[in-house]
C-alpha cells in the first residue's frame, strides 16, 4: 500500500523528526528571543509581556556583563587552542603511526571518558586542583605555586572534558589523507617536520576547525565546571542560571543567552570558508 505512495511514505518517515526539529528545537530558540524582549517588573518581580529592549540595554551598559562576556569568549578560545594542540599529535599517531590493533585500543581510550558522568570528571579535577591535590603537589615539587581554583583550572577542566570532540574530527580528517601524500613529500626531499607543516596541517585544518566548533560552543554554554573549579569567577552560563533561578528574571536570562548564539553564528560564518562544514 505505502510503496505506491512515495510522498506519503516520505511524509510519515520525516514527519516526526521534522516536527521535533521545527517545534521543540527551533521553536524553543524563537521563544528565547521573544522572552528576551519582555521585561520584569522591578518591584513585584512579575514578568510583563511588553516589548522592550531593556534587558539588552542593561547587558550592554553595565561593565560587569561585558567583562563576563569577554571572559567567556576568552576561555572558549583558550580551551579550543589547548584541545587543538593536544589533539593533533594524538590523532596523528592514531591514524598514521599506530598499528590497527593499537589504533582500536586508542580509539576506545579516547571515547571512554565520554561514558563517565560530567560531574564525576569535573569533581575529579576539583580534587586534583585542591590544596594538597595532584596538581598542587606537582607544582610544589618543581618549586612553583599551584594555580588553585580559578580560570586556569576552568580552562584545563573544560579542555579535558571536550578533548574527544576535537580528536575525533582530526582523526577522521587524517584517515582521509592518503599515505601517498606523505610519501610524496618525503620523496621530494622533505623531512618529517616539513611534511607536517606543509602537507598534514594544511590538509587537516578544516577538520580542526570542525572540532573547534564543538569545543568552542560547548565552552560558551558551560556553567558547571567554572562553579566546581573556577573559584569565584563567573561565565555567561552562570549569569543565565542565576537569573532563571534566584532572580526569576527570565527576560534578562534570555537576553544573556542570546550572546553565545550570536557569537556562534559569527564564528560559523567565519569558518564556513575553510570547508569545516564538510568535516562535521
Amino acid at each position: 500500500m505505502l510503496h505506491r505512495h512515495p510522498r506519503v511514505r516520505l511524509a510519515l518517515l520525516l514527519g516526526p523528526p521534522m516536527l521535533w526539529l521545527g517545534v521543540a528545537y527551533l521553536g524553543a530558540l524563537a521563544a528565547l528571543f521573544v522572552t528576551a524582549l519582555w521585561t520584569q517588573n522591578g518591584f513585584t518581580g512579575v514578568i510583563e509581556r511588553q516589548w522592550t529592549l531593556d534587558s539588552f540595554r542593561t547587558l550592554f551598559t553595565e561593565d560587569v556583563y561585558r567583562t563576563i562576556a569577554l571572559r567567556t569568549i576568552g576561555v572558549a578560545v583558550l580551551v579550543t587552542l589547548v584541545d587543538a594542540v593536544v589533539a593533533f599529535p594524538i590523532a596523528l599517531y592514531m591514524s598514521k603511526v599506530a598499528r590497527p590493533g593499537l589504533r582500536r585500543i586508542l580509539l576506545v581510550a579516547v571515547l571512554m571518558p565520554l561514558w563517565a558522568s560530567y560531574l564525576v570528571k569535573a569533581y575529579a579535577w576539583r580534587g586534583m586542583f585542591s590544596e594538597g591535590g595532584l596538581v598542587s603537589s606537582a607544582f610544589n615539587a618543581v618549586g612553583l605555586e599551584s594555580p588553585g581554583y580559578g580560570l586556569t583550572a576552568t580552562v584545563v577542566t573544560l579542555a579535558y572534558l571536550w578533548l574527544p570532540y576535537m580528536i575525533l574530527p582530526i582523526y577522521a580528517g587524517l584517515e582521509r589523507l592518503p599515505n601517498s601524500l606523505l610519501e610524496a613529500s618525503a620523496d621530494l626531499g622533505a623531512r618529517t617536520g616539513h611534511t607536517i607543516r606543509r602537507v598534514i596541517v594544511p590538509v587537516v585544518i578544516p577538520a580542526m576547525v570542525a572540532g573547534s566548533i564543538f569545543t568552542f560552543s560547548l565552552t560558551l554554554g558551560d556553567y558547571i565546571a567554572v562553579r566546581i573549579v573556577g573559584g569565584t569567577n563567573q561565565l555567561l552560563g552562570n549569569v543565565v542560571y542565576d537569573n532563571v533561578g534566584a532572580a526569576n528574571n527570565l527576560p534578562f536570562a534570555a537576553a544573556v543567552a542570546t550572546i553565545p548564539v550570536v557569537v556562534m553564528l559569527v564564528y560559523l560564518a567565519a569558518v564556513r570558508r575553510t570547508g569545516a562544514m564538510e568535516n562535521l
Partner: peptide, 14 residues
C-alpha cells in the same frame, strides 16, 4: 626517502 636522489610518480599521482 628524503636522502635519496630518486623521485617517484605515484599510481594515484599524490
Amino acid at each position: 626517502p628524503y636522502a635519496r636522489d630518486v623521485n617517484t610518480v605515484f599510481q594515484d599521482y599524490a
